[in-house]
Simulated assay, not measured.
Amino acid sequence: MQRILVFGNSGSGKSTLAARLRDEQGLAHLDLDVLAWLPTTPPERRPLAESGRAIDEFVGGHDAWVIEGCYADLLELAAPLATEAIFLNLSVAQCQANARARPWEPHKYPSRAAQDANLPMLLDWIAQYPERDDVLSLAAHRQFFEAFPRRKQELTDNAERLASQGRPG
């Protein structure tokens, strides 16, 4: 029974890898972006307890799953039930290239034009990953990864990430 956490910087390929694992292994899939934010402008984080209830509902409703996101605080909530953690620790340059090439994400943006309008902000956000000091940072992801007690792997470039997508379950 696979219960996998996939995490890393924006643009690291979390959604792509999680979707591949979902499709190949028949896993339920949760993108933490959909429950981490309140529907406000400007965006505001949902209270941790509220997001935690949504994670509990998801993991309680599925035997096998993949959860992906960049929120170390939310990953911590699912970690006790996870069997594996995959840290996509690509370079900033690779993450930015992936962000430029990503397809339209209709669950996040009302149109491709809206997503493209957000790209400069996203590229800047990606560039700040190594220096930030929050639950979305390299430091938080490194700490989470090091503390995770079960099977784990760290992938550091696109070639490794793409090769791992074909790994047996």
Rank of each mutant, 00 (worst) to 15 (best):
A159R: 14
V92Q: 12
R100T: 07
P106Y: 14
I67F: 00
A82N: 10
S91Y: 11
L90V: 08
R132Y: 07
E160I: 11
A72R: 00
W104M: 10
E146P: 01
A139W: 02
A113S: 09
T156A: 09
D124E: 12
R112T: 06
N118F: 06
N118T: 04
R151V: 03
I126Y: 00
S51Y: 04
D124M: 05
P103E: 15
P103Q: 10
Y71I: 10
G52M: 02
D56E: 15
L119V: 02
V92E: 11
C95M: 06
I55H: 11
E131A: 15
V66W: 00
E160Y: 05
L74I: 07
C70N: 12
W65L: 01
F87T: 03
E50K: 07
L123W: 07
L122E: 13
L122D: 06
P149V: 08
L155Y: 03
N118Q: 05
Q94L: 09
A99T: 12
P106N: 10
E146H: 13
L119Y: 03
R142L: 12
R100Y: 03
E160F: 05
Q143P: 07
A72K: 01
L90W: 00
I55N: 01
P149Y: 10
A114E: 11
G69M: 01
A99I: 03
A99H: 05
W125L: 09
D134F: 11
G61W: 04
H62V: 06
A140P: 00
V59C: 05
K152N: 09
L48V: 13
S111H: 06
L88P: 00
Q153M: 12
Q115L: 06
V135N: 09
E76C: 04
L138R: 14
W104R: 05
W104L: 13
R142K: 14
D157E: 09
P130Y: 08
R112Y: 12
A99Q: 07
A82M: 03
A99D: 05
I86L: 09
A97N: 10
F58W: 04
L88Q: 02
L90P: 00
V59F: 09
R112P: 05
V66E: 01
S51L: 03
A139K: 15
V66G: 15
D73H: 14
F148N: 14
S137R: 13
C95V: 03
Q143F: 12
F145R: 00
D133S: 12
A85E: 02
H107R: 14
S51N: 13
V59P: 00
G61I: 08
C70F: 14
S137V: 12
R142S: 09
H141W: 03
A64N: 10
E105S: 15
Y109M: 12
F58E: 04
